[in-house]
Amino acid sequence: MPVYKNENAKGDNKWWYQFYTGEIKNGSRERITKRGFRTKKEAEKAMVEAQAALQKGEYIEPSKKMFQDYLNEWIKTKRNLGEQTLELYESYLRTHIIPILGQIPILKLTAHDIEMFLNSLHDKGLSASTVKRIFSVVNASLNSAELKGIVAKNVANRVEKPQASSRRQLVVWEPEFVSDFLEKTRYASRYWIAVYLAVMTGMRQGEILGLRWSDIDFENRNLTIQQTVNRHREIKDGAKTKKSVRSVALSPETIEVLKEHRKLIVQERVELGPEYQNNDLVVCTQFGGPTTQRAIQKVWPSFLKKTGAPKITFHDLRHTHASLLIKQGVHIKVISERLGHSSITITMDKYGHLMPNMQAEAADGLDSLLKTKAGQK
């Protein structure tokens, strides 16, 4: 393999490759050379990719490659990301990054270009947290470019990283209000069941819309999250992360509510007959098809208006579920498992502030324990 290593007095031990294109240029066989790889394996991999691109007629000389061309190649390698994360990255590329930075050759991209780009995002009125996430995408792409030897250095590392503003304070409902809210809205829409499940299980919206009757064990009172419905009404296997594919215990009342809702679904299926789209979904249209997230968001404001409820988002019901468990003294590990968090750290980071009284209760409990022991002597 035409892969070489620099070994000189300057201590330059980087690897590089060189191969012939098969073309004659200015009377000599044309060669493609690329330097700056940290390992032999990286150089070999980059050379194979360059040769494949050359055969397909897609090879672009590094000096002429635009940042947008590189970004479009880079995002195709990120298939290990969750679906929603990948959609978000692609949206940032399409809407913000490529329109501003895309036409700059990647080798000519500077820290100043990145700084001006960040300024333009702030000028658009984007939140600090959104700007930080967009910058993270640019930074990750350039880290990968440096690792592959496409650029010598990631210029984004020379830019002061944007700081996110303080996290939005979680808004949750008290138990008494939740009960009243669910009772007043129960027959307001066929999609009430989605609201109920959000409160009683803490499931994400996509998980609720993807829930099937076959995923529910009525006898043992639990459900298993195995698929989701995305914003395009597509049913997807799996969940947000491996940890999100999980079982969630159900209360006796939740089982009864689901049984009642199933009667409606069975009735619609019988009435429509062969025209019914039997996807086995718990939350579905009257024709059996997947429900759009937009449909849920459309009825949600009417529920708030009907009950005079404090304004929160549908996703905040997931936080309300967590707060209800915390008020019951449920162990944080159990809460983390129900929510499908990848670690307890995430759960504590989100909901730790809802537990201010737990240490006081623990301290008081020590007094009670020691007094009891003293009285037994």
Results as ranks from 00 to 15, higher is better:
Pro2Arg: 06
Val3Asn: 02
Lys5Arg: 15
Asn6Gly: 00
Glu7Met: 00
Asp12Asn: 14
Asn13Asp: 10
Glu23Ser: 10
Ser28Ile: 04
Ser28Met: 11
Arg31Tyr: 07
Arg31Ala: 06
Thr33Asp: 02
Lys34Asn: 11
Glu42Phe: 07
Glu42Trp: 06
Ala43Val: 06
Val48Pro: 00
Ala52Trp: 00
Phe67Trp: 10
Phe67Thr: 03
Tyr70Phe: 14
Gly82Pro: 03
Leu88Asp: 09
Glu90Asn: 13
Ser91His: 11
Tyr92Glu: 04
Arg94Tyr: 04
Thr95Lys: 12
Ile97Glu: 00
Ile97Met: 03
Ile100His: 11
Leu101Thr: 05
Ile104Leu: 07
Leu109Ile: 13
Ser120Phe: 09
Gly125Trp: 11
Ala128Lys: 15
Thr130Leu: 07
Val131Tyr: 09
Val131Met: 09
Lys132Gly: 08
Arg133Ile: 03
Phe135Gln: 13
Ala156Asn: 09
Ala156Val: 06
Asn157Asp: 13
Asn157Trp: 07
Glu160Lys: 15
Ala164Tyr: 12
Arg167Val: 08
Val171Leu: 10
Pro175Ile: 06
Phe177Tyr: 14
Val178His: 08
Ser179Ile: 05
Arg186Trp: 03
Ile193Lys: 05
Ile193Trp: 10
Gly202Met: 01
Gln205Gly: 05
Ile208Arg: 03
Arg212Lys: 15
Arg212Val: 01
Ser214Trp: 00
Phe218Val: 08
Arg231Asp: 12
Glu234Ser: 08
Gly238Gln: 01
Ala239Gly: 00
Ala239Leu: 04
Ser244Met: 04
Ser247Val: 10
Val248Ile: 15
Ser251Asn: 02
Thr254Tyr: 07
Val257Asn: 04
Leu258Arg: 02
Glu260Gln: 14
Ile265His: 03
Gln267Lys: 15
Leu272Ala: 12
Pro274Val: 09
Gln277Glu: 12
Val282Asp: 06
Val283Trp: 12
Val283Ala: 07
Thr285Pro: 03
Gly288Cys: 06
Thr291Gly: 05
Gln293Arg: 15
Val299Ala: 10
Trp300Phe: 15
Leu304Ile: 14
Lys305Tyr: 07
Lys306Tyr: 07
His315Lys: 02
His319Ala: 02
Leu324Val: 08
Leu325Phe: 08
Leu325Asn: 09
Val330Asn: 02
Val334Thr: 14
Ile335Trp: 01
Ser336Lys: 01
Glu337Asp: 14
Ser342Phe: 08
Ile344Gln: 11
Thr347Trp: 12
Met348Ile: 12
Asp349Phe: 02
Leu354Phe: 15
Asn357Thr: 10
Glu361Lys: 14
Leu369Thr: 06
Leu369Pro: 00
Lys373Val: 07
Ala374Lys: 15
Gln376Glu: 14
